[in-house]
Simulated scan of single mutants.
Amino acid sequence: MASSSSNKLVFLAFLLLFVFSNNLVAGKPQKVKLNLYYESLCPYSQKFINDDLVKLFESDLHRITDLKLVPFGNAKVSDNLTVTCQHGEEECKLNAIGACAIKTWPNPKMHYWFIRCVEKDTKNWESSCFKTYGGEKAIRDCYSGDLSKKYLILGYAKQTLNLMPKKEYVPWVTVNGKPLYENYEDFVAQMCKAYQGKAPLPKVCNSSASAKKKVLKLQVSYGEDFHH
């Protein structure tokens, strides 16, 4: 009899724990997937990273966002797996540095700021970004080895080249897998619209909805024959 009572108590405890856990999960914000496919020396990608994407972390929007940066852009991969970048070897290097930063700091809140630092000054980034954010040894080891070129970049190449619908230009921004096309600069409003979580909307969504809609001028970099 005592054993039966104990079993019932254990069962009830597990039941209560299950219900409580479900309530906690239900209260958490459901993340909206925001993907940015970019290349390091594209001026339009730089502008989006520096001036637009920063809104994610300067507001409370980041709490409902699953951000993914994909540094490949309009690069091409030959049959022997050689990568050629639209803006030359330096862009290939900076794409790989970005990939290594993502590998070093998987948390977007950390690797975004380093990548933004690089994109703000692509000529002198080494003297400032490592000093500000650290990670020099890990990133240099990643870049100088085979990891960045044979695995990370080719992985990002596969993700970019297999997009459906296909990427038309960079920056290419998707929300939950759907491209924003010419509305990519208005990604905050699109993120707020896509959010389906039970937690309250981020405060920035209220200000975004009340703001006047601006006329967007499409600024992109096309990849055909490596011309803008």
Results as ranks from 00 to 15, higher is better:
A96D: 03
V173C: 03
V170S: 03
G135E: 08
L147F: 12
A209R: 12
V77F: 11
P179C: 08
N107S: 13
T122A: 04
Y151A: 07
Q190F: 07
E90W: 07
V188R: 04
I97K: 07
K150W: 06
L161I: 15
L147V: 10
A138E: 14
P202M: 10
L154Y: 14
Q196A: 12
S148T: 07
T160L: 06
S78L: 08
D121G: 05
G177F: 11
G135C: 11
C85M: 04
N206C: 04
F130L: 07
K103M: 04
A199H: 01
V188K: 06
T160V: 06
W125M: 02
V170R: 00
V83E: 03
D186E: 15
S148W: 13
C100P: 06
R140W: 11
F187Q: 05
P171V: 02
G98Y: 08
Y143K: 06
Y156N: 13
H111N: 15
K198W: 08
A157I: 06
C205D: 13
G98E: 13
A99R: 09
K137M: 02
Y156V: 02
W113T: 05
K109L: 12
W172Q: 05
Y156L: 04
E126P: 06
Y169W: 15
K109S: 15
V170Y: 05
S144H: 14
L163W: 10
T132C: 01
T122Y: 04
F187A: 04
